[in-house]
Amino acid sequence: MLKFLLRTAAIAAAIAIMPAGARADFPDKPIRYLLHVSPGGATDVMARKLAIAMEKILGVPLVVENKPGGRGATQLAELAAAKPDGYTIGAVTSTHIGAFNQTLKQYKVDSFDWIARLVNEPYLIVVNKDSKITSMKDLVEAANAKPGSVVMAGFVRGSGGHFAWEIMAKSADLDSKKVRWVPFDSVGDAVTAALGNHAEVAIAYVDLVKTHVQAGNLRVVAVMSDKRVPQFPDVPTLKEQGYAADTSWQQMRGIIGPKGIPEPIKAKLAEAVKQALETPELKAYMEESALIPAFQGPADFTANAQRENAVTKEWMTTLGLTR
């Protein structure tokens, strides 16, 4: 009896001290996937599609939980407090990195484990159909000819889209103050303002404007990408238009987890993401939604997040948005 107890205790102790990653059976219970957005938006839809695909690969359910509120604060607080065992992961976008430098300064890139990047989404400039602007050159000339006459709608100041515009303006040697940047509560609201011609120009994504461009209500002026996007084959890239803007500045989406997840578990999650992105369902969805597959594993993704963070910090300082 004593022997049995001792043996049981020894086995229990061995299991307890074994590093979590060494357990080949990860995952053996459902994984929680926390989102910073309410259900129904593009980020939510993509996450749910990914969860379904990853479920089949990992063999356990991925439970999507919406934790909106406080501009990401609710999600990040819960994520940061979770056990770093791979059973709690969260969605991340470029907006989070912006928040680390503005509203949620208690977090840094280092506060989380960066598990995998999923996709990138290039920014683009659209104008109302009645606008006279047809190219980046027109836009720059209009702004220079009469400062303040061009009104540009976008997401909040300090968002990825705002910096995208600043980067484009810099490449054109245009003082960005000559264009009035009007912050809306979402990129979708900004597109609506351009549709109604309340703002002549808007910064948005391909997916949000695609049908409006096809229907002839909006016109694409420039896409911030090194290649033409398949949805708008006739729109020349910024480079073709003669502007050397850094086109690597795109909206990214990825997966993060609490700090300290064992490497093997991270690798396993990243591999599952990679495989999931290659399933026909997700491929079709990404193509439909004009998302560019941009998988990165933990190491590359962390380096990329650091780089993006450095660019963000620099622009925040330049534009005087740090507080």
Binding site: S38, P39, G40, G41, A42, D44, V45, R48, K49, G188, T192, L195, K210, T211, H212, Q214, A215, N217, A284, Y285, E288, S289
Partner: peptide
Amino acid sequence: ALGIPGKASTAVLVGALAIQGVRPGPL
């Protein structure tokens, strides 16, 4: 007709349709 979700409930509808590959909007 425009793909503009005016409120939380219609935003969910847009999302549910997007999952099915249907984009509300002018087309």
